[in-house]
Structures are given as structure tokens and as C-alpha cells.
Design a protein around this nucleic acid. Structure first.
Lengths: 354, 354
DNA sequence: CGTTGGCACTCCATTCTACTGAGTGCTGAC
DNA sequence: GTCAGCACTCAGTAGAATGGAGTGCCAACG
């Protein structure tokens, strides 16, 4: 029954990277074809594929074997084959290769980064749009974390009688703010004093390194302001304030599925920033660059695949970009786009902090 | 043929706020029913509606008249009637009333604003989520413009040899930044000097009131920095930097339509911030609070309706909230929700600047 | 032994038909 | 002006027939 020579009987054995060269070619053909057409592909079509020069009967036998091993599935008897998640996985890992961006896309990327200007948030937002355009997927960009960036400026601005704003500038150009409720009226002079002490206490450090040590200025009223200031700084450094997410091209999800229910559930997920960020981080932490179907734990995205790519700023991974598409997305293209854009973005961010 | 006593013959005459009391009741019933069921409604169903106590035959005659006058339409012969845009318009203007939020929603709003905290952007973002939840529509929130807010702080922070960041704090708590490329290396002292002069030039004014008058400090190098600083300030005051848009609940659009194409085109529009902001502003400028179907000029949204509501901070209209749904959205509910949330949001924003 | 052409079989998709039933428009009577 | 009655229309559903793409199996071939 089993025709291949790398012996393994029926059932889905562990076969780590087995598969006959011809079976690989056939799987490759099926995946490629299906990505393009979204239609089950039959043995006839596979015959035309390069690297496969056997009759359709032989292909059928191999496809049956591939189905037994879990790489392919049949929507119903006497239909063509569709890749399973495992099939896509093999395709991504052993076939398909890295793929290259088409010249048009390459040009688009170049142009984008040549003309990219303005503040970081704007750029990340636009980057998500670019990625979405390039890949016909939904793009997710998680802004670089500011954990390691050191404080360049700390300022307290009075906004009302008992209200002030703590404004912090980090070395990477990020500006964060935190409103502060004061126990009693504080005049500008005292605010400025407090800000000076806060600065002395924190400048040059990262937000996460601010300790709660009290600074004594000699004046108890000022001390009180400094104290809430320190609290505010530590709050900014905590996880709550971090991780901006930019999602672009969510409309592509409506083009990817024809079941409107699927679209809705996917969009619902995309609206939950925390879920998305966690998902991307999880995948990355597991050392993957692609998560297919149920490989990530988010059930409503079972018919989706995620491509993730770290963004390194000055050699340190701080940001993430992700692509979300149907499991039958164009993996080589998505990987190539994510890689190129990720690199350029990292470069760009590194430059801008010199 | 025409049964009503307020004489007007066939054809879609101007009839500004005509319509027989019974015809109104029938139209009301059709719209209400259709909003709930999304199914064409027939004369039988209208019979059950309150305020209509005539036989189905009479209702049929009236519905035929309503169709002739353009308030109703038939998907095909011998189907029930569906409201046209004109029908919805009449419903919104003369029927349906303001509507009230259900107690659950009211509770939700109260709870939200009681617990709302954190920075303004976060709050606006969450407000869009709240509105979307309340109405099953997609919610759009345009942040209050900072045109009128006066400058409370101007600061220049050096980030690199020839790179600085202009950080501006406005009286309403908004923080804006703009990176500045310097022609030559500038040390911290000179930056501080320049910032001081900038502050003297601009503090207490609104961003839009910054004029290009050069400030002479006596030192040409400092003057150069001040000059780019002024440019940057004016840039921040220009339209480009304004109008943050927060969109929440776009997944509801996938539930509203069963044609996946419609969903895609609507989502595509929602991704274009400028289009959305312009749309909302347009509708508001025309003095409308509801724009139905083609009343706003955006063709891909022809099957959608928009509800807009201004947000007043200290009595001045500065922000906008909008709801986007299918033309058969629940107008009374949407209007009520928009009104309540708009008011509370305005109050909240007014408070926070005291 | 792997490969191949042939063949019977399966079953989705399409088409056609018939039928149902919700809904209409009309008409004549009250 | 309203209403009951009636003939008519037509989307939607269900069932039967058809076509065709695709499969699995097998016997034969090099």
C-alpha cells in the first residue's frame, strides 16, 4: 500500500521530516495550487506541476498516502485534496523556501521607507498599512517596547489646582504622560522643584529601573509631590502602559473568507489588543515564525495562520510584526514581506535614535 | 387612488411632512418590524401593530401609496415591503421619537464613566468600544480638537547630535511632540535657552495662534533653533497633526450584512481615517444628526447609515462621535446611546480640565 | 517492483420541475 | 372609505435527473 521507500506504515507516525522526494513535490503542488485557487486540487492538475512527471494514477496513490499520513484531506469522497494544517506546516518548513518579494512590492517598501517621516506612532501605523497592502493579509505591528530606553526628560506641568501632568521623554523619542492627582494645591514653583528632584532621581535610568526610594528635599510638601511623581513613573514603567498595537488591513479578512461568521469572529479577536499582542508574543516565544490553524491557541482563529517577525532595534528585539491570513495564505510571500519590512523598520528605528 | 385627505396626487411630489396619520403608523410599523427582523414585512404583520386597526386590504392600499411616494419598496412582486432611505428618513424625522437607553445600557454607561480613568486617548478608545457594545454598530470617536487649548509647556529635549524633540503640553492635558532636525550640533544648554524663548513666545496662546514672528535672542545659533522650533509649533497647529480617530466594534459590520463583499467595502472605508473624519464633519456641518444611505456622499456606504453627535467641552463643540450601521439600524436606540454617551463624555472632558 | 491505463464508482454541483405559501392588486359589496 | 374575497405572482424549498471531476482499485506492462 505504502509506495514510498522510506519505510513507515499507516497511521500518523512521528515521521519528523520524512516524505519521499516525489511526495514532497506533490504536496508542494497541492499547496501551491490550493493557495492560488482555493479549490480542492485533483491528481490531473498535479500532473502539470513541475517536478512531478508521473501519471495521475501514481499521483493518486501518493495522495492517498499523504492523506493517510495527515498532510492532505478530502472535503468529501471524490473531491480533490486540500492541505491540512500539518500539510501547510511541512510546506512552510521544508518546501516553498523563503520566497522573495516581487519587484513591485520591493519598490513599494523602498519608497515607503525613503519617504517615511514623522513620529514613530504614525510610522508604525502606516507600516501596518504597507504590510497589509503587500500581502493581502491583516497586518499587526507591536510598537517597540520602551523598557530599555532611558529617561531623557521628566517634567511636571500643572493643569489645574490639584491636577498635574507628568511628562516623560525617553531616549528613543517616545513621550509618555500620566496625570497626577495632588492632595492639595501646589503652585508652579513647587511643581518645578519636585520635577527637578524627580529628574535627579531618574534621569539616565530606564523606566523599569526606577525604585521607590524616597527622595527627601527637606520640604515635606514638595516631598509629597515627588512621592506621587515616583509612583506615576513606576506606573508608566509597569506593563500596563506598554505595547501599542497597530492593526492594518482588517478588510482583507473579509476577502479571505466567504463565511461572514468567520469574518466576524476574526474581527472580534482583532479588536482585543491584549489577545493579539499575547498571541504574537507567544508564537515568537515558542521560536516559531509561522503558526498555522490551531498551533496558536486561539480557537476563533482556527482557520487562520499567523506569520510573526521580530523587529530588532540596535540588535535587541523589541518590537514585533505579524500577519494574519487564512491558513491558505501565501506563506512565502508573507514571510518575505514580513522579513523585509521588519528589517527595514528595525534599521529605521535604530537610526532614529542614532 | 390616493386615499388620504391631505390632497396630493401621484408621483413623488415634494410633500414636506405630509402623510396621513394612519400611513405614518403603517410606515412606523414597517420600519420597526424590518429593523428587528431584516425581512420584508407584509400587510398581515402590520395589522398587529399598535395604532393600526384596519384590515390588511386597507393596509395594502396604503402601502401601495407609500411605495408610490417612495417611502417603501418591494424586493420583488408579491413580497412584503422594505423601507427606502426616504422611508427611514421620515421615520427618523417624524416617528420613532428620541428613544431611551434601556436600563442595562444606562447602567453600563454610568459604570463606564464612573470607572473611566487614565489618559484621554485611552478613554476615547474605550468609549468607542462602549458605544459599539451598546448599539451593535461600529462606533467612531473623533478626539476633541486642540485648536483652542492654550500652551502650558514647551520643551526641547535633545535625542541625538542633530536631533531634538519638541514636546508641547496643552491646557487640556494633551501632549504633542514633533521631532526636529537641527542643522548642526546643539548642546543641551542652547536647547534649553531656545526652549525658554519659545515658551515666552507661545505660552498661554493656542497652537493655531502661534505666528511666525522671529524671536531674536541675540545669539544667531540659538535663533536658528528657535526658528525651527516655531516652524514645528506651527506644524503641530496645522490640520495635519489633528484629529485622532478611534474606531470600535468594526466586527459588528460583519454581523450587519450577509454579503461578504459589502462587509469588505465598508471595512475598507473604515480604514481610511481621513474619509471617516471628513464624513462625520460633513454630516455635522449640514446640521444633520443622521445620514441615511446615499445622503452622505460615500458610495461604498450606500447601504449604511451614520448617526453623529457633537461632543461639547465647556460648551464648545470640539469632538464628534459617530455610529455606523446598516440602514436598517435601530435609530432610536442609536440616537439615545450617542446622545447619552456624548453628553457624559463632554462632561467628563470638561471636568478634567476644570 | 513501481508505474500505468482502464474502469467502476461516488458524490458535489447544476439544472429542471413541481409545489408551497406569503404576499400582492383588484373588485364588488357594505 | 373600508373590507372580504379572489386570482395571481414569485421567492424559496424540495425532489429528481444529469454531468463531470475525481477517486480507488486492478490487471498489465517494462
Amino acid at each position: 500500500m505504502q509506495t514510498s521507500d522510506n519505510s513507515r506504515h499507516e497511521g500518523a507516525g512521528p515521521d519528523p521530516l520524512a516524505l519521499d522526494v516525489r511526495k514532497s513535490a506533490i504536496l508542494n503542488a497541492v499547496v501551491t495550487e490550493y493557495i492560488g485557487s482555493a479549490q480542492p486540487v485533483g491528481s490531473q492538475h498535479v500532473m502539470d506541476a513541475p517536478g512531478v512527471s508521473v501519471s495521475s494514477a501514481t499521483i493518486r496513490a501518493d495522495m492517498a498516502a499523504l492523506e493517510r499520513d495527515g498532510y492532505l484531506a478530502q472535503p468529501h469522497t471524490s473531491a480533490g485534496r486540500i492541505p491540512t494544517d500539518k500539510g501547510y506546516r511541512f510546506f512552510v518548513d521544508h518546501l516553498g523556501g523563503p520566497g522573495a518579494l516581487d519587484p513591485v512590492g520591493r519598490q513599494q517598501v523602498r519608497q515607503f521607507f525613503d519617504h517615511a517621516h514623522g513620529e514613530i506612532e504614525m510610522m508604525l501605523e502606516k507600516t501596518s498599512g504597507l504590510l497589509a497592502d503587500l500581502t493581502d493579509c491583516t497586518a499587526m505591528v507591536v510598537g517597540p517596547s520602551h523598557e530599555l530606553a532611558t529617561l531623557r526628560s521628566v517634567q511636571l506641568v500643572g493643569l489645574g489646582p490639584r491636577l498635574a501632568l507628568l511628562v516623560v521623554v525617553l531616549a528613543d523619542g517616545a513621550v509618555q504622560k500620566q496625570s497626577i492627582d495632588l492632595a492639595e494645591d501646589v503652585d508652579e514653583g513647587r511643581l518645578a522643584d519636585a520635577a527637578r528632584y524627580l529628574a535627579a532621581h531618574s534621569l539616565g535610568r530606564a523606566l523599569s529601573q526606577i525604585d521607590a526610594t524616597l527622595v527627601t528635599t527637606g520640604d515635606p510638601a514638595t516631598d509629597a509631590v515627588v512621592s506621587v511623581g515616583v509612583d506615576a513613573l513606576r506606573h508608566l514603567g509597569s506593563a500596563e502602559a506598554g505595547d501599542q498595537l497597530f492593526v492594518g488591513g482588517s478588510s482583507h479578512m473579509a476577502a479571505a473568507f466567504d463565511a461572514v461568521d468567520t469574518v466576524r469572529s476574526v474581527l472580534t479577536i482583532l479588536e482585543q489588543q491584549l489577545v493579539v499582542v499575547t498571541l504574537l508574543r507567544d508564537v515568537l516565544d515558542r521560536g516559531l515564525s509561522v503558526a498555522i490553524g490551531t498551533e496558536h491557541g486561539v480557537e476563533p482563529l482556527a482557520s487562520c495562520a499567523v506569520v510573526v517577525m521580530p523587529v530588532s532595534v540596535d540588535g535587541v528585539v523589541t518590537g514585533t510584526i505579524g500577519l494574519l491570513g487564512p491558513t491558505r495564505m501565501n506563506y512565502p510571500q508573507a514571510l518575505a514581506a514580513a522579513q523585509v519590512v521588519g528589517n527595514r523598520l528595525g534599521q529605521r528605528l535604530s537610526e532614529s535614535r542614532r
